[in-house]
Amino acid sequence: MDAVEIERAVEQRRVWLDKQLDVAATALDLSVVGQSVNTFDMRSAGAVARDQDGDVWLRVVVQDDDYEPVCRWDGNVTANSIRGVAKPAVLRWHDWQNNVEYLRGRRIRGEVMTLAPGTTVAPGGVLHDDPQLPDTWWQGLRRSLAALATHPTEWHNELGAVAFTIRGVEHHFGITLPDNVFADISWTTAHADLHWGNLRRPQMCILDWESWRPMFAGYDLATLYCNSLLHPVTARRIRDMPELHTHSGNLALLSAVCRYLWIVGEGSDWDPLEPHLRAEAETVLSSMSRRTE
């Protein structure tokens, strides 16, 4: 597809998602009152809506079983069980099957969620400027990630995370990671999509829970670090955290780097990160090579 065709396809998807917001609002007895916001991958859209008790967030998402990294169809709903984490809650939801020609047969979900306080730190996901976050904000993030890390989950995709990392390192760096690299690593429950577009201020709150799953310990800080590389002061603050100074943290960082390298070149906010991501990965790979010698 050329640039014009891509632009038309994106616009078609945007218009279709807006219509699904209206369908969800009718089914859930809401009225949409805010501007719709689409995710980068155009899998979902959301907007402020009005309920009988006040403003809420209405989100619609299209099921895509082939999407990588893994997203869970019921992730936002099942995340209601997580305690000790600053996050929105899903109040109710409605599923239906798309019967129009465009994406016919796809399953769609509308979710009514509590409205997160404040504003998004960086709507595009990548940090360019000083976020001016107080120490209390960072303390809140640390508390939430610590609570999340200990949350039990019955859903397991550890082998998928390993395979994704191996495939990414081979593709982007021409290096095959030996099996012993993945010995003695630690796993924790992770949000798994922690970028600045999923964080709110001035009150710390973590959005978008469709991807939460077991991951290499340190993965959430690794993804946030990758999205901070254009603002060195913030990047250094995250890089100095102890979770990223472990073997599991190194693997988490490699996995996060590969994740973003897959989408570099698609005209998004992540494109300028490429040289920084590559430099970070080269450092980690060099340290791993010394470790396995």
Rank of each mutant, 00 (worst) to 15 (best):
G124C: 13
P131N: 14
N76A: 13
G110V: 03
H128I: 08
P123A: 10
G118H: 11
N98E: 15
V126Y: 03
W96Q: 07
V121F: 04
R107P: 00
A79Q: 05
I82V: 15
L103T: 05
P88M: 06
A122H: 06
R83V: 07
G105M: 06
R104P: 01
T120R: 14
L91M: 11
M113W: 10
L91G: 02
D129Y: 11
R109F: 01
A89F: 06
G105P: 05
G118Q: 12
Y102W: 13
E111L: 11
G118R: 15
D129R: 13
A79M: 05
S81K: 05
D95M: 01
T119N: 00
I82H: 01
E101N: 10
R83C: 06
P88W: 09
T120Q: 08
S81P: 00
V77M: 10
I82E: 02
L115H: 14
W93T: 01
G118K: 12
T114S: 15
N99C: 09
A89H: 09
V90I: 01
H94F: 10
R107Y: 09
R106H: 13
N80I: 01
Q132G: 11
V90F: 01
I108V: 15
G105V: 02
N99T: 15
A89K: 13
L103F: 05
V100L: 14
D95R: 02
E101K: 14
N76H: 13
P88S: 07
M113H: 14
R109K: 06
A122G: 08
I82L: 10
D95Y: 00
G124H: 14
K87W: 01
I108Y: 02
N98A: 09
I82S: 02
P123F: 07
A79D: 06
K87E: 04
T119E: 04
G124K: 12
G124W: 08
A89G: 09
N76G: 09
H94V: 00
R92A: 01
V100N: 12
Y102D: 03
R83S: 13
A122C: 10
V112L: 08
Y102G: 01
P131M: 12
P131W: 10
A89P: 01
T114W: 11
H94A: 02
G124T: 15
Q132A: 15
L127A: 04
N80S: 02
H128K: 11
V85R: 09
H128A: 11
N99W: 14
L127R: 09
G110P: 07
R92D: 03
A79E: 03
E111P: 00
T119W: 10
G124E: 14
T120P: 05
P88L: 07
R83Q: 14
N76P: 09
V112T: 10
L115I: 08
R83E: 13
E101W: 12
P117D: 08
H94L: 00
P88N: 08
L115R: 15
V85F: 06
G125V: 07
G84I: 10
R109T: 08
N98G: 06
N98Y: 07
T114E: 15
G125F: 01
L133P: 00
G110M: 07
A122F: 04
A122V: 09
V85W: 07
G124S: 15
Y102A: 02
S81T: 12
D129M: 07
S81Y: 01
